[in-house]
């Protein structure tokens, strides 16, 4: 006979809580994150909503006499200025995403086929820019692209142009800056997928008669679909909602949704309009994200067989 010690009848509440949080069952382990999200995201979001859908007056920094109203939403939706602004944001974000993918994929491919040192070099070059602030990197572009900047001086020096090119404060400067800032965000998920890649699949593909191009197209590309999806979603979200780069490199005359919201909050104090615009920004961003998710899902059907 072996006596099994009876579990203590009462557990201290702290122990009970820790036990639940670490049990890995149900939602318990996510409880701390959920609490923080509610505090830092949901509550401000509800407040933002309430500003956008109400008329109110402010007295001594306090909101008084708030009444429900759809006026601001109507105003924004009927004003063509806002439509063009959103359009500009959208096309900027989409082209940033596309260019980042086109530039980032070859880097990830190089990571896949490269040796140990190539891989390290790529990782360092990709991660290093993330260690400096986006604002610093954007200012660096001003130095490079400016009227008397590095690029213009070089081109003038080589005699390729007679007058400095006007790049800063144009659409192009913004696009260049956006691509540079967001490229690592595209490359990292791609690399993550590539480093999990089974090299014997490439050998199998070659053995079955595929050229390098064929292997890239029919094996490596489809298998990196999850990374492409993640990278595209991240770059799109970030570049659709960023305001630092357009603000600095666009020189104040490049207006996208984010810079417009900023101006409404900081300069013209139209909080309701800003609130409605933020909501629209968020909603339209979600629509594109869902689109990206659907496309990615379509190309990663095979991963779903796994549970079966």
């Amino acid at each position: 006979m072996v006596a099994i010690p009876a579990p203590p009848d009462r557990q201290k509440p702290v122990d009970w809580l820790m036990d639940k949080l670490l049990s890995g069952q149900g939602v318990w382990p996510a409880v701390p994150a959920i609490l923080i999200l509610v505090i830092v995201a949901v509550i401000p979001f509800v407040m933002l909503l309430s500003l956008g859908f109400s008329d109110f007056s402010v007295s001594r920094g306090q909101i008084i006499d708030q009444t429900f109203s759809m006026r601001h939403l109507g105003n924004v939706l009927t004003d063509p200025l806002y439509w063009t602004t959103f359009q500009r944001s959208m096309s900027l974000a989409l082209s940033t995403t596309a260019i980042c993918l086109l530039l980032g994929y070859p880097v990830a491919y190089l990571f896949l086929i490269g040796g140990r040192w190539t891989r390290r070099a790529i990782l360092i070059v990709t991660i290093a820019p993330l260690l400096t602030s986006g604002i610093v990197r954007t200012y660096a572009w001003l130095v490079i692209l400016g009227g008397r900047g590095v690029l213009n001086n070089a081109l003038l020096g080589m005699g390729l142009i007679d007058q400095p090119l006007r790049i800063v404060n144009t659409h192009w400067a913004v696009l260049i800056g956006m691509v540079q800032i967001h490229l690592p965000v595209m490359i990292l998920p791609l690399i993550a997928v590539m480093s999990r890649h089974d090299r014997s699949l490439e050998e199998a593909s070659a053995n079955l008669g595929a050229s390098r191009m064929g292997t890239l197209r029919h094996v490596i590309l489809p298998l990196s679909a999850p990374g492409i999806g993640t990278g595209a979603a991240l770059v799109f979200t970030l570049s659709y909602t960023t305001f630092v780069v357009p603000q600095l490199l666009g020189g104040g005359n490049y207006l996208n949704a984010a810079t417009m919201i900023y101006e409404q909050v900081v300069y013209s104090l139209e909080w309701s309009k800003a609130s409605v615009m933020s909501l629209l920004l968020m909603a339209s961003c979600l629509v594109v994200l869902v689109g990206i998710a659907l496309v990615t899902n379509h190309f990663t059907r095979w991963t779903r067989g796994r549970q079966g």
Binding site: S200, S205, H218, V219
Partner: peptide, 30 residues
């Protein structure tokens, strides 16, 4: 990719994103 040699890998190296049919058809397609 031009050698008349077929390899069955130790880990099989099946293409996870292709069905059984797709895997078998792969070489013929190439």
């Amino acid at each position: 990719n031009r050698r008349p040699v077929g390899v069955v890998f130790q880990s099989y190296a099946l293409f996870p994103h292709l069905t059984v049919e797709g895997n078998v058809a792969y070489g013929l397609k190439m």
